[in-house]
Design a protein around this nucleic acid. Sequence first.
RNA 1: GGGUGAUUAGCUCAGUUGGUAGAGCGCUUCCUUUACACGGAAGAUGUCGGGAGUUCGAGCCUCUCAUCACCCA
Length: 1060
Amino acid sequence: MHWLNGCVNDLGGKTMAMDKTFDAKTAEPRIFAEWEKAGAFKAGANAKPGAETYCIQLPPPNVTGVLHVGHAFNHTLMDILTRWKRMQGFDVLFQPGLDHAGIATQLVVEKQMAAAGEPKRADMGRQAFLAKIWDWKKVSGGTILEQDKRIGSGMDYDRVAFTMSGADNAPDGEEGNFHDAVIKVFVQMYNDGLIYRGKRLVNWDPHFETAISDLEVENIEVDGHMWHFKYPLAGDETYTYVEKDEDGNIVLSEERDYISIATTRPETMLGDGAVAVHKDDERYAPIVGKLCEIPVGPKEQRRLIPIITDPYPDMTFGSGAVKITGAHDFNDYEVAKRGNIPMYALMDTKGAMRADGRPYAEEAAIAQRIATGEEDFDEAKIAAMNMVPEEYRGLDRFEARKRVVADITAEGLAVMVANPAADLSSPAAASTSSSGSTGGSPTTEIPGQAGDDGSDTNEPAFIPYVENKKIMQPRAERGGTVIEPALTDQWFVDTDKIVGPALDAVRDGTVKIMPESGEKVYFHWLENIEPWCISRQLWWGHQIPVWYGPPVAFLTDHLTDAPSQTFCAASESEAIEKARDYYGNEVEIGFLSDKQAAEFASNNWVTDGSGHSSSEPITKVYLRRDPDVLDTWFSSGLWPFGTLGWPDRTAELEKYFPSDVLVTGQDILFFWVARMMMMSYAIEDKEPFHTVYLHQLVRDEKGEKMSKTRGNVLDPLEIVDKYGADALRFTNAQMAALGGVLKISEDKIKGYRNFGTKLWNAFSFADHYEIPNPGDQPMPQVSQTLNKWIIGETAKVREEVDQALTDYHFNTAANALYAFTWGKVCDWYVEFSKPILQGDDESAKKETQKTLRWVLDQACIMLHPIMPFITEELWGLAETREKMGVHADWPTYTAADLVDPDADREMNWVIALIENTRSARAQVHVPAGAKVPLLVQGLDPKGQAAWDNNQTLIQRLARIESLTSVDAFPKGCVTIPMDGGTFGIPLEGLIDVQEEIARLEKSMGKLAKELGGLKGRLNNPKFVASAPEEVVAEAQENLALRENEETQLKAAIARLAELG
RNA sequence: GGGUGAUUAGCUCAGUUGGUAGAGCGCUUCCUUUACACGGAAGAUGUCGGGAGUUCGAGCCUCUCAUCACCCA
């Protein structure tokens, strides 16, 4: 054939010798190129007229990504499904694409710029920086899709979608609909009241100076410290602090003029709004409602905060009292919201202590009036207040922490404990310390202060109480910066309003999540869904289509404190229209540049430099575009229809949306799957797909996550180089048990490479026997039992594979094909066919030749979705083919039509006889090569027929010289019990009688166990009464067989016993 | 702390209306027999995590305990 070189010559269709093994390294790229040239993966390729559609959309990898084993696994599964459906004649689209991956991409490009010594992005400006990223994307973006070709992913590469395509600043060649889609969705959702702006505590990345989603934060356990400080009570109040043990015995009772607070983040004390204790905590009951003092900052302006009750504090943890810093901790945020406690933000966008605002003394005075209820407050007022004392302003948060700890300790407000390093015999150290804290052991380590006071020879008797403990620290998934919870203005999707249909769809089965456990997790998450923060303070992404302008009152009153006006519009021109409607036609509308917008101060809407007096009306206003971009998941949430041309009603959209199945990692169920569900329903009022197939992370052979730092990363491309793509793909399919843990190992891959070679050699065998290989031939009509049998087996495996793939049981499909190809075709059919192929019966020979070719073709077809390369190569060895293997017609024959029960029974009997004979021979050490005579006793007609039909091949495979029927076995005979007769190998004088008896007794032992079970059940009247008929019948049948076998074994043992 | 899952051969894992346990790899022995040593033949190994319950019958269903993993706080 023309599309595959080599292997076929012009000498009358006779094939040249095949290579010893399949040379994956050279063949695979060649074959993939041929597929692409033939357009084999184009949408609708090989579709039968009027075919149903089948669509899978690739979860878009990051544009910066390179192929790792997780992708390879994920992509293989989708490729298996789409290849399978394509061969069945469906109208298939396997839609590829890439995600612009805001933060990840920006990080990559900024790193490169830094390495090249180029100016920082802030210096180069937004447009120039974006141009840089686009340049980078052009050169290195999408490497992964090229790598995908190495593993055989059959996607429609002419349709690669990109989530930033068509953006305002996109260069030539990056046209596309995605940007329009994103903007249209935003505007639509804004107009529908599904998107709003608000102040929320978000995860703030101080390095990128952006909010990131909860899901992009990972909590890492690190060594941290828990400091214990005293918050003195206001007005010299005291109370009796009583601590009891489990039995209620008082273990400590003392007068205190403070409340002890434990914290891992002392620097946030400056922003405390309250101290909270549990309402059931008797220790603090006397002081609830009183005020205490934050023990930091200038002495004269110490703030007082209330002691409140809340369910949040854990009475058994730390001192049981918690400082509430609503602006810097998520738990505190909830407590503060519940208790209407002011949340003072202490840090700027870089994570340094704020340096803006009024002098601390003024701020503290206002805060004091708020705390005592003398002054009202609202969100904006609190946000403007800077509660950082001058001495800490501008310090990095970690530096501020050290300073705060040192200052409090110096003032004597740290909780002290006895110093274990001090001389315990001294009276001071032996006395009871004032610490009443529970949990944790004191430590001598004082971070940042070691050696400051006291010398090595003269340890202080008491030291500050600092626990060394593991704390969970939030880190940015990208970059690893310590996340700072921050109160900021962000855009949110009101998920409560759109989550309904997404939940219903799964509840009512419109969308099925596999494995089912995924549904539970999905419900749990969506039923407790939080507002989705969609703004990111990045540049690489879809800029939020919102412009701000002055309130209309500003035109006449420049000092108005009315809030600014928001215009949400799909474009600048639309924004102008909206602004005109608002300001009136006489007012000229302009836009602030990026630079101006960046420097914008909220009270200055006039930027033409002219001075305006409040009496002078303004005739031109400048709109400022929101500088933020949308969360990457906002755009990828539109993937199911965005890839198909939406908002245009393209033919592809009509055809392929909703798609069929989403195959993705369990880890992005919330990130992505849930969002696609919500967005699809919100925008198109349709489910995005009908099935979600979730799989786990691919791990190394020990089950550990692969990571560069661990050094256990397997590179799929190296595997492909070493073992071929098919081996990797087969391994992937074979591990894909629903919900299973995915552990990949090189040994496994090697094993499936060997499997490919086995298939290869089966073809090699056919060539070796000079079996014609004409190409597409109908299933042969056969009369030979052997051929009937293998055709039936083929039908069985076809059903099994189809069922398995329908159920997404890739492992079952792979294992069934493995067992069929190796265990049935190679181990038995090929061996059985040899005597016929070498024999004189021309018609049997011809029939077997045809059957063998047919069976091998079927194996190729059915293995193709999993092992496309080697099967394509083998397919192409035929003289003619109507289509390439990638488009070969998937079979539809059924076991009901093709399984011949008689042939089945006969061949299984033959196989059992050969196996039993081999086993008996091996165990009595008959040399493997030696041919032995075989005796038979009491062979029934069926057995006789089976023997007669298959005599040659039994003799060949069991190495039998002759068969003689006898009435009684001679003494010293190895016994082979079979259904329908007992066989024996006469070996008098050659066998070790004791060994043979041992062998038979072992068989008896196994039998006895089975018999016991069977008899036990059948003798139980309740079993016979309550079990289904067929189960009872099966048991009875089984019992008869086993009893027969038992009789034969007993006789054999008796014979040997005589001998011994 | 909340959630989800796992525990089956030496290892890695299958095992769906509950019918009496399998595969691959590894291991042992033998075999270079004309498709294949990336091979062939034979073989060994299980209290299906512990305990209890439902059932004629439980690896599978229920409860409980133990250990582990992952996700979210």
